[in-house]
Amino acid sequence: MPEHIFIIHPSEIIRNGLKEACKDFTDLNITVLQDGNETLNELALTQNIRALIIDATLPMCKEILNQTDTAHSFKIIGIYYPADWPNRTGEFDMEVNTSMSIDKIQELIGDLLDNQPRAGKIESIGHQLSDREQEVLKLLVLGHSHKEIGSSLNISIHTVISHRKNITLKLGIKSVSGLAVYAIISGFIETDNINPESLI
């Protein structure tokens, strides 16, 4: 089964630059992706990940790090801009920054992958809903529109829709009535004062 390197960065120049740099020292499949739900989905469906090279400032990066335990068998490499360059954070298996020379980046990533015996899989991208997603879920199944949810939580409609997509991706449930069943049986909705069946 082929092994994969994923490069995830909002900047096309950086994505493709890193791809070219990696091509010089590896024959693995290299996929470049922007951040977004489709990316999370593709990662969750890929069995043999050897390395994930990702913009360290992306929200999804934090999520992946949270969901991936320290024993993961693939490497996660954080990309920083020089202004954000940290002292070693310990969150990643390695950090690189965009002002490094290609040779330096190739050397660092090449060495890291040489020392890595096997590829693995992201086991559990988001089986748990974040606090914000739980709030959106509750309002959604109580019958509020995206606009109302946005006003109530002080976030844009776009963000509400993005949370909604993530909720579906994590739970495997798409319809509002299906989400209502999930919310009730998981105890997110108090059913003392409402007839739960009216939500379905």
């Binding site: 449930i173 798409k174 319809s175 299906g178 999930y182």
Partner: peptide, 13 residues
């Protein structure tokens, strides 16, 4: 979509 949701509700939750 709903049939798939029904299966997942049973399988997962």
């Amino acid at each position: 979509e709903k049939l798939n949701d029904l299966k997942n509700l049973l399988l997962k939750y």
